[in-house]
Design a protein around this nucleic acid. Structure first.
Lengths: 369, 369
DNA sequence: CTGAAAGCGCTTACAG
DNA sequence: CTGAAAGCGCTTACAG
């Protein structure tokens, strides 16, 4: 099955020039519009920018000419002249991760509403070279502003590498006090959320809670900290963190040993995808969920409510974080911008069917049917 | 729990000017570099652009000055002068949908490798107003080029509204012959894939296959067509399509009736998320999967292999489509660009545990345990 | 191999 | 309310 690329066609038929037609395909300039409307190009500029001091009749004439010529203002020229542009670019690693994708979506929505084009700049790694290449792509002198998702080392390095003079806002981990003091930023308190989720499991009667973690390039992620804190406050020693990746597959692999150990009755997972893989591993080991083990995730993805069993998880309002980041940036760029109130909701535990009390003190594992 | 916005801080401390420090925060220009290196600004331009005719010694001196001044070229000025920029923006509806997100990711990867910044322009609706606003945001005269994901009506309208003179490439449905002839485009043959999946179910012994569809603003989506074709070629009348949205929840709702009907033994779903919801509905109705009903999805999301049961689905190489789109666009912008061969893999049915032969002719539904 | 000239399309003071 | 002037930072011919 080949040939699914239609490619290398001639592109759209050289759009039929209308009766009133413009000559150059390079499209009309402000001067062409001016000529047609019988005014100076400055006046056209004023009309475009909604400057108040333009006679209504003039404005109409100019608008007419704009329409007839299909004039679209040249953004580059505007940016050069102004020394800045109304545009935002989101700097992040891997846009396919749920949290990143949702923040990007939130930023995009807010930016669109405010008339800002949005760019995406992906970090390849936290290496200095990769970071400066990203900065190069996103921070030219006329860049409007950047939003960096600094949930990992690459993001943090990028944030710190943003040249002075470029407006910036950041999505940060709660635990990153240093950068929170330094940059306008928005934070989701997933440390508290992890603590709350762990307490919830403990309150259910579980003797301890194990943790399967998403990657964290910083020393100790907020979620790990919260989990640890909840254990510590009850004098329970924390078992070793099971490090995993981001995918269900990695969760599956990381939890093989846990699934084989009947003493493991509660597992907190760094995200819902991991939880899906962990669930699979336990089921494969013949363990009923939540009969013999309780599983909790993070994110509240649209899928999690339809897992089998439906997953208890922590809702994280990433879209709200994106909105707020944009608002912060907008304010930094233009202090007269309407300062919309915060929208990001605090994390919240959503209890579903994947959690319950621990099994009655049976130490033997269930056999596979 | 408030105060998670750190906001409105003063931004990064006005980066300590180095010993050699530049004065203006507006960063150095080509002329500043020239002065420091003792050359003309044209020579600096040549160095920046890797022009061959520059003496090595000169080049070094200029590079040195660039480093010392932390010079970053002004993209707007370059674009204005050149009349175009090396940048690509992806026009699409809802970036959170799996296929769109993966195509965007593919485009971004390829663009990054080629040194193109990437923008995202989201379509709100297929209404003319929304479309022209999107075009306005993405197609200024110096725009490098656009890639439009034309899987829905909004995308198709946007594609057709791209002004002449703006290089363009599109991800299109197989069924859209008209636009395929008109624009450089790449296509995933999901019509054939849907036919293959339906045949597979029929070959398993199912008397018919029901279809729960993702939204399609075009008359008949490729997947629907393929499903219908497979039925037709065996003389089986197609049941009505069950229209759903994109989420597991919508799949769940759309399949309530199907789940209640014991004659339904095979369901093809427009995507994996839908399949997850459909699975839930059937399980809730006491139907064993695949014992009493086979379920097939589309996409092969990373989650699908860990569903319960693991989902039979069609792998669609959206990332490859993204790569190919960028390649096509790159070629349109710059015919000397290396024309990398196609990478998008054809769709492929991945058989997992959610499908099997139909139940032995028992017409009564299983009761809930 | 390198420099002096002109221009890309816009905006912001500055006059009227 | 509107127009003539100057400049944003780069690039592309054109000379040398």
């Amino acid at each position: 099955m080949t040939g699914h690329i239609e490619g290398f066609a001639d592109g759209p038929a050289a759009a039929g020039s209308e009766a009133t037609g413009v000559a150059r395909p390079g499209s009309a300039s402000i001067r062409d519009v001016a000529q047609r409307a019988g005014v100076s190009h400055q006046t056209v500029s004023r009309v475009i920018n909604g400057h108040p001091s333009v006679r209504e009749a003039t404005r109409q004439r100019v608008q007419g000419a704009i329409g007839e010529l299909g004039f679209r203002p040249n953004r580059a020229a505007r940016a050069l002249s102004l020394g800045t542009s109304r545009a935002v670019t989101v700097i992040t690693s891997d846009t396919t991760l749920y949290g990143r994708a949702m923040i990007l979506h939130g930023v995009e929505e807010a930016a669109r509403a405010a008339g800002f084009p949005v760019g995406v700049c992906v970090l390849e790694s936290p290496e200095p070279d990769a970071v400066s290449r990203a900065i190069e792509r996103s921070c030219d002198p006329t860049a409007g502003g950047v939003i960096v998702i600094a949930y990992d080392l690459a993001g943090i390095q990028a944030l710190r590498a943003v040249p002075a003079g470029i407006p910036v806002a950041a999505a940060l981990e709660v635990t990153d006090a240093e950068d929170r003091a330094r940059y306008p930023s928005v934070v989701l308190d997933d440390r508290s959320a992890a603590r709350a989720a762990t307490r919830y499991l403990l309150d259910l009667g579980h003797r301890t809670v194990h943790y399967v973690a998403i990657p964290s390039s910083t020393r100790s992620s907020a979620r790990t900290q919260g989990w640890r804190a909840a254990l510590q406050e009850r004098g329970i020693p924390a078992a070793e963190v099971r490090p995993a990746g981001w995918t269900p597959h990695s969760g599956y692999q990381a939890s093989q040993q846990l699934a084989a150990d009947p003493a493991v009755t509660a597992v907190l997972c760094g995200n819902d995808d991991l939880a899906l893989g962990v669930t699979h591993a336990f089921r494969e080991a013949g363990r009923d969920i939540p009969g013999t083990v309780s599983i909790v995730g993070f994110d509240n993805t649209p899928q999690s409510a339809y897992y089998h069993p439906p997953l208890t998880t922590v809702r994280l309002d990433f879209v709200g974080v994106g909105h707020d980041c944009f608002q912060l940036l907008h304010h930094a760029i233009d202090p007269t911008a309407p300062t919309t109130p915060t929208v990001a909701a605090p994390p919240e535990l959503i209890v579903r069917a994947s959690t319950g009390p621990p099994p009655r003190r049976t130490t033997r594992p269930r056999k596979k049917p």
